[in-house]
């Protein structure tokens, strides 16, 4: 059995809105083991964004226990969580969030800029490797405004990989992309999964669940369904089956 990367025990998260208390998460427990590709699904208001924030150490639960790679997160201060994010988490956002007018390499270097133990040359080397791994080895010096959406998302994935994180958290990572490009990105995620990476992919698109190894469905702040996908579809196959776009 692989070691557990994420352990959630009865996580609750309440928000105070005016005089009312909103229960965004009402006792969520699950464990993600190394090498899993988990999709977390749910409609809006189901609590998946809140869960993602907690998983990403951006937020802390009101109660419950969260262990990330064996480290208890709940009692941590802001700065400790920032360090933890820097070392153990790679984020991929829906809207890429690349730095404007900045080259691919500099964008990917960003997490390592906040890690003083990594030298400038090592930083550069790791950024180039990560970009090569996502298939952008020939676009190292392209600036973010000179790239397509798919390329920008690849840069964002490279940025998530560069610190060799315990888990990659993707938040609607294909939400802004067309079908073909979405499949290209899914191919990349499946490739990373095959290499043994742990991935948590938050989405409201049920189609994506077919390409992951496990699917968790949230509803009203609780887990409604948590099952292992026995028949993982190949995103590469789906991409090949798509009609070829007309050249224009």
């Amino acid at each position: 059995m692989n070691k557990s990367i994420i352990e959630l025990k009865d996580i609750k998260r309440n928000f105070k809105v005016g005089n009312e208390i909103v229960h965004a998460l009402r006792g969520v427990s699950f464990t993600v083991r190394e090498g899993e590709f988990v999709t977390i699904m749910g409609t809006s208001g189901s609590g998946k964004s809140t869960l993602l924030n907690i998983l990403g150490c951006l937020d802390t639960p009101t109660s419950g226990e969260y262990l990330l790679d064996g480290v208890p997160v709940r009692a941590m201060g802001k700065n400790e969580r920032a360090r933890l994010r820097n070392h153990k988490i790679g984020f991929v956002f829906q809207s890429y969030n690349l730095l404007a007018k900045t080259t691919a390499v500099e964008n990917v270097e960003l997490p390592l800029m906040y890690n003083s133990r990594i030298s400038a040359s090592e930083r550069k080397g790791r950024a180039v490797n990560a970009l090569t791994a996502v298939g952008l080895g020939d676009r190292l010096m392209h600036k973010s405004n000179q790239m397509s959406g798919g390329q920008m998302q690849r840069v964002a994935i490279a940025r998530a990989l560069v610190n060799d994180p315990a888990v990659i958290l993707a938040d609607e990572a294909t939400g802004n992309l067309d079908t073909r490009t979405s499949f290209e990105i899914l191919v990349l995620f499946q490739k990373l999964h095959a290499e043994g990476r742990t991935i948590i992919f938050v989405t409201h698109n049920p189609e994506i669940a077919q390409y992951s190894s496990r699917n968790i469905v949230l509803r009203d702040g609780q887990i409604k369904e948590d099952k292992v996908n026995e028949h993982i579809l190949s995103a590469a196959g789906a991409l090949a089956a798509l009609p070829v776009p007309a050249e224009d």
């Binding site: 802001k78 700065n79 920032a82 994010r85 906040y114």
Partner: peptide, 16 residues
Amino acid sequence: TREIGLRMSVGARGID
């Protein structure tokens, strides 16, 4: 603001 949010999510502390 988004740039700052991004920097924080990849590990920048307030002091950074």
